Simulated scan of single mutants.
Amino acid sequence: MRARIGSELRSVWNAGSLAKAQAALDELVTGYSKTAPKLATWLENAIPEGLAVFALPDHHRRRLRTSNPIERAVQQELKRCTVKVRVFPNDEALLCLVSAVLVEIDETWACDNKAYIKWECRDA
């Protein structure tokens, strides 16, 4: 069922416009309202936030769809730092370490001249 839902959600994300994405989402919610009502409720409540990407210009949307290298770099750095410690005394200690690592990554990216998304619009 997960694979089927994943492919159906991809049709929402791959829609050409916000109206088409909303129509695909509405169809998905209607389709699951009787067989999986919790899933339908979740789709109806959670997915519209992700549709905000359709407000961006097309070339920004394409760039955001390929953010896996950034996510992978962040996840690898978090794993590298947390594996060294292995056992944390409490949740706050883990949160403190992860927050510090993320702040450091953010500062590095803020000072970097290579912006992942150039906010100036251009014809793509």
Rank of each mutant, 00 (worst) to 15 (best):
Y116E: 00
L43R: 04
L25S: 00
A23G: 01
A24M: 07
E120M: 15
P57C: 00
C81E: 07
A55R: 15
E104I: 08
Y32L: 08
W42Y: 13
L78F: 10
A110P: 03
E49W: 07
W119V: 10
R86N: 06
S17H: 00
Q22I: 01
L102M: 10
A100Q: 10
L78K: 11
R62N: 06
E107T: 02
Y116V: 07
I105D: 01
P89W: 11
E120Y: 13
A115Q: 04
A19V: 02
L39A: 10
N68P: 03
K34W: 06
K20A: 11
K34I: 09
D91M: 11
A110L: 15
C81S: 08
A100R: 14
R65D: 12
H59P: 10
G50L: 03
E71H: 04
K79C: 06
D26F: 06
Q76G: 07
S17L: 08
A73E: 12
E27R: 15
L28Q: 03
A110W: 14
V98G: 03
T108K: 09
V87D: 13
L39N: 07
T66Y: 03
V83A: 01
L64V: 11
L18P: 02
A23W: 00
A100M: 08
E92H: 08
F54G: 01
L43Q: 01
T66E: 13
E44S: 14
C81T: 11
P57L: 08
V101L: 08
L18Y: 15
D26Y: 12
L95P: 02
L97S: 08
S67I: 14
T35G: 01
D112H: 07
V29T: 07
W109Y: 06
C111I: 10
E92D: 12
I117E: 03
S33K: 00
V83H: 11
I70L: 15
Q75T: 07
P57E: 05
L28K: 04
E71Q: 06
V103H: 02
E120K: 15
R61Q: 11
E107N: 08
G16R: 01
K38I: 09
A52E: 03
S67R: 15
G31L: 11
A115E: 12
P89I: 09
D91P: 02
R61L: 11
H60S: 00
A21P: 04
Y32T: 12
R65V: 07
S17A: 14
S67D: 13
T30I: 12
A19H: 14
K114A: 13
K38L: 10
G50Y: 03
F88R: 06
R62I: 04
Q76S: 11
